[in-house]
Amino acid sequence: MSLSETPFGVAKIQHRKGLKRLCDFALALITLPITLPMMLMIAVAIRVGSGGPALMRLSCLGLNGRVFRQYRFRVIRGDLSAADLLHANAADAGHLTPLGAVLLSTGLNLLPQVLNVLWGDMSFIGPRAVAVAATDRREKPDNRLLAVRPGIVTPDAFHPAGQSLSESERMALSLAYVRCAGACTDGRLVLQSAARIFRRRS
C-alpha cells in the first residue's frame, strides 16, 4: 500500500490542493486590477476590429470531470465557433483575424482565464484542459488528469525542449505533474524556468 492510499496520504494530498487553491485565488485577486483593464481594452479592440463577440466559451472537463466554460478571447473569424480552435490547422487555414494572430502569439488570448481561476474552475499552472468536444472524437481522457484543476500554463511550458515535445511527452509531463501538484511544485517550476532564462541571457 502506498502512502497516497492511506488516510495520511489522502490528508497530505488534500492539504496540498487546498494550499494551491488558496495561492491561486490570492494571485487572481492581486492581478485583477491589472488584468481587468487590459481585458476591457482587448475586448473593445476585438469588437471594433472584427465585430462579433469578444469572448469564446469552450466547454471543458475540470476537477473530478466537472464540466465548466473556459473563457478566452476570440482569435478567429466571427462566423467560426470555439470548436474550431480544436483543429490543428486553424491558423494555417486562414481562420485567424489580424488581432487574433497577435493575441495568440503573445498568449494574451488566455487572459480571461484569470476569471476561471478566480471562480475555482482552473489554476494558474496545471495540465491542459480537456475540451468536451474533443472527447466525442477520441477515447475518454485519462482520469488522472481530472484529479487536479486544469491550468492556464501547462507543465510542458517549463520544459527546456519547449514546442519540440511530442504529444506523448507532453502527456507524460502532465501525469508527472499531477502526482505532485501543489503550490510548492508550481513555485519550483517557476523558479527553475526563471533560472534557465537567466542563464541563457547571461
Rank of each mutant, 00 (worst) to 15 (best):
D156M: 12
F198K: 06
N116Q: 08
H87Q: 12
V75R: 09
D121H: 15
F198H: 01
I197T: 11
D92H: 03
V153N: 06
S81D: 13
R69L: 15
T135D: 01
D92G: 00
F73D: 07
L110V: 07
L108E: 11
N143G: 12
T154F: 03
S81H: 05
R66G: 00
P127S: 06
P127T: 07
A129L: 08
G94L: 00
L115K: 01
T135I: 14
A88Y: 05
D79K: 09
Q70R: 14
C60L: 09
A195R: 05
T97R: 12
R138G: 10
R149L: 15
D121P: 09
R69W: 11
Y71E: 07
E169L: 05
F158R: 10
D79A: 01
L110Q: 11
L86S: 04
W119G: 09
A161G: 01
N143M: 12
I125F: 02
E139A: 15
L110G: 04
A131N: 09
A172F: 08
Q163P: 07
S59C: 14
R69V: 08
N116C: 13
G187F: 02
L173I: 11
V153R: 00
V75L: 06
D84H: 10
R74L: 08
N109I: 10
L80A: 12
L58P: 04
N89S: 11
N116K: 09
P160S: 11
A93R: 07
M171V: 07
M171A: 10
L145N: 02
V178N: 03
A91G: 05
S164C: 01
R66D: 07
A134F: 09
V67C: 09
A93I: 04
K140A: 09
R138A: 13
K140G: 03
M122T: 13
N143W: 11
G65H: 04
N143R: 15
L96Q: 06
R72F: 10
N89C: 02
D142Y: 06
L86K: 04
S174K: 05
E139F: 14
C184N: 06
V114Q: 05
L175E: 05
G94Y: 03
